[in-house]
Simulated scan of single mutants.
Amino acid sequence: MTRLRLADFRNYRSLAAETDARFVVLYGDNGSGKTNLLEAVSLLTPGRGLRRATYRDMAREGGSGGFSVRADIVSAAEEATDALTIVRPDEGAASPRTLRLDEAPAKSLDDLLGHCRLLWLTPAMDGLFTGPAGDRRRFLDRLVLTLDPEHGRRSLDYERAMRGRNRLLAEDRRDPVWLSGLEEQMAGLGLAIALARAETVQRLGALLAARREGAGPFPAAELELSTGYGPLDLSRPAAETEDEIAARLASGRAQDRAAGRTLEGPHRAELTVTHLDKNMPAALASTGEQKALLIGLILAHAGLVANSCGLPPILLLDEIAAHLDPARRAALFGIVESLGVQCFMTGTDEALFSAIADTARMLRVDKGAIS
């Protein structure tokens, strides 16, 4: 990404920043707007960005009520694509967010994935291994999305079908034909979601295992996925597996109605992470070890995406340098350089980035302005 422009986003009335460097460092005092800039960049992919905030919260207080994020994105050897995403939450449209690519309306936000892939790591993710399973599912789905652009749409369609089934089960008079149709839809989508997750876990796990020797400051992790379907053989023909899932949903209607929710499916999946060198669950590792594991996962996946898609991802690392000693900091900079990805980093102390100051785009952030 070579340029970023904002209007009425968070604490920025307007902004134009040159971002044409391997490393883009945003430094300044707490509360100056560094993470807001990362959040803006994170909207160059489908979803609600790295904070998962509402659009109303992203709009500048006292502004127009909407906002825009615009970027010049260079993928591979192609010319820059002008990507403009506009949010107008007060106009009552089915979707308040629209996308234009080189001034032409895009079919959907998923079109962004043809131009850039994004990965991020924020302080809010520090409790990933000890928090609820839903956090790890969202983390895994973000990894899957960078490899499989259809994953997000499948997940949204599955959630919609599941909510429809749950509402129907709660009614006194239930239409069995309608229920069967929703269950068949959930079976097909749910299997596709489970398969995409399993493939990502397998590929990333193999890469991490291969790098175990000499893993350096970022320890290797072992990944294990529970699909949410209990014992289910994903290696069988898809049609056969879908039929089994649909039959299990039909036979489980009474239990699901009593529980008030669907008890089986990819929405119940669990990702388990193990510290390989210590052979212990990541949840039991020290805070520092968990942070190092998470960084190692993100860096390994960035390499997997770059090699698989031919589209090196953009990394957004919020307040990363302050939590690393000088050796790990140097290792992080070196790995990012070797991966050939672009990396945005934030920090309060400019000196933390002195090792890359000569090549990085160093931007001082101060109360909604940069210099």
Rank of each mutant, 00 (worst) to 15 (best):
Met1Arg: 03
Thr2Pro: 09
Leu4Lys: 06
Tyr12Trp: 14
Ser14Ile: 10
Leu26Pro: 01
Asn30Gln: 09
Ser32His: 08
Gly33Asp: 02
Thr35Leu: 11
Ala40Asp: 12
Arg48Gln: 08
Arg51Met: 09
Asp57Tyr: 13
Gly65Ser: 04
Val69Tyr: 09
Arg70His: 13
Asp72Met: 14
Ala77Leu: 10
Glu79Val: 02
Val87Arg: 00
Asp90Val: 13
Glu91Asn: 04
Glu91Ala: 15
Glu91Ser: 10
Pro96Asn: 13
Asp102Ile: 02
Glu103Pro: 00
Pro105His: 07
Ala106Trp: 04
Lys107Pro: 08
Lys107Asp: 15
Leu109Phe: 10
Arg117Leu: 13
Leu121Gln: 08
Leu121Trp: 04
Pro123Asn: 09
Met125Gly: 02
Ala133Gly: 09
Gly134Val: 09
Arg138Thr: 02
Phe139Trp: 12
Asp141Arg: 03
Leu147Cys: 03
Arg153Ala: 15
Arg154Trp: 15
Arg160Tyr: 11
Asn166Trp: 10
Leu168Val: 05
Pro176Phe: 00
Pro176Cys: 01
Val177Met: 09
Trp178Phe: 14
Ala187Pro: 07
Gly190Asn: 04
Leu191Thr: 02
Ala198Cys: 10
Gly205Thr: 04
Arg212Glu: 15
Gly216Ser: 01
Gly216Pro: 01
Gly216Cys: 04
Glu222Trp: 09
Glu224Tyr: 05
Gly228His: 10
Tyr229Asp: 06
Tyr229Met: 12
Leu232Gly: 06
Leu234Asn: 03
Ser235Cys: 07
Glu242Pro: 06
Asp243Tyr: 09
Glu244Tyr: 05
Ala246Glu: 08
Gln255Tyr: 02
Gln255Cys: 08
Asp256Cys: 05
Arg257Met: 04
Ala259Lys: 00
Leu271His: 02
His275Arg: 01
Asp277Trp: 10
Ala283Phe: 06
Gly288Thr: 01
Glu289Cys: 00
Glu289Trp: 01
Ile295Gln: 06
Ala300Asp: 09
His301Thr: 05
Leu316Pro: 01
Phe333Arg: 00
Val336Leu: 07
Ser338His: 05
Leu339Cys: 08
Cys343Arg: 00
Gly347Asp: 10
Asp349Arg: 10
Asp349Gly: 04
Phe353Cys: 06
Ala357Glu: 15
Ala357Leu: 09
Met362Val: 01
Asp366Trp: 11
Ile370Asp: 00
